[in-house]
Design a protein around this nucleic acid. Sequence first.
DNA 1: ACTAAAATAGTAATAGTTACTGAAATATTT
DNA 2: AAATATTTCAGTAACTATTACTATTTTAGT
Lengths: 131, 131
Amino acid sequence: MALKYSKQRAIIMDFLKDRKDHPTADVVYTNVRKILPNISLGTVYRNLMLLTELGEIKKIQVGDGVDHFDSTTGEHDHFVCTECGGVFDLPVREAFDAARYAGPDFDGEITGYTLNLRGVCAGCLAKEHTA
Amino acid sequence: MALKYSKQRAIIMDFLKDRKDHPTADVVYTNVRKILPNISLGTVYRNLMLLTELGEIKKIQVGDGVDHFDSTTGEHDHFVCTECGGVFDLPVREAFDAARYAGPDFDGEITGYTLNLRGVCAGCLAKEHTA
DNA sequence: ACTAAAATAGTAATAGTTACTGAAATATTT
DNA sequence: AAATATTTCAGTAACTATTACTATTTTAGT
């Protein structure tokens, strides 16, 4: 039950803290392996899950069938590039009013929302223009 | 290249048209099998994909790791119940202004968005109260 | 150090989905 | 309506992302 220190978890957390993009478990794995060459993929998954439960990171799902992980835990939304698959943070805006959006007739209890914008990122747009 | 009629595809489409929830491929499979007992799961997937490409249905991903399929093709958003896993249509509201939400500093091209509200549906709330 | 609990590496299993193959259904041409 | 071409099929195998299992190693409290 009690949480014990683990070098693997510390390095995973450290890696995520420095990334502005939203790496997948596999990306975390291949990168952390540069420091801990025989860390196992299962360990990466287990710790990503644990860190998510602890609230130190967030698991985000953008509909590409792969989980992404984000060390920015505050409420914010994402932009997904349909060209390169990149996931980018959107600047935090005025809080989105989910209850108001659902409308007065909605009779469930709303606890949260997921909002992903979709399109082509600035980088891919630049590439298109030069091509 | 040319599309040919298939009984399997017709029945899949027919099944989806009558559903207000958003069945998964597996749900489509088990139900269509009542009519065509030896349809194969691969056929279901292939036709769901094809119908999606044709724009006759929509594939929706709500972050539960499974694809759902929706015969309501107009722009609308969804509510996902965290208790029962159900996916429900939200009434169509004033169009969500994605570009405005992204803010003036955003320098990509926005082509769409996905908005899922999350919470407990009316049915599950009722169950909780009686328990 | 000693011991109990937790975490690990490595591997196996699972779920959802996609790909492959020879046979059957559909459409087109004669 | 028979022959031919093309699509779709059922059935199965393969694949990807993730989770579970197990014997061994690490960690931390006594």
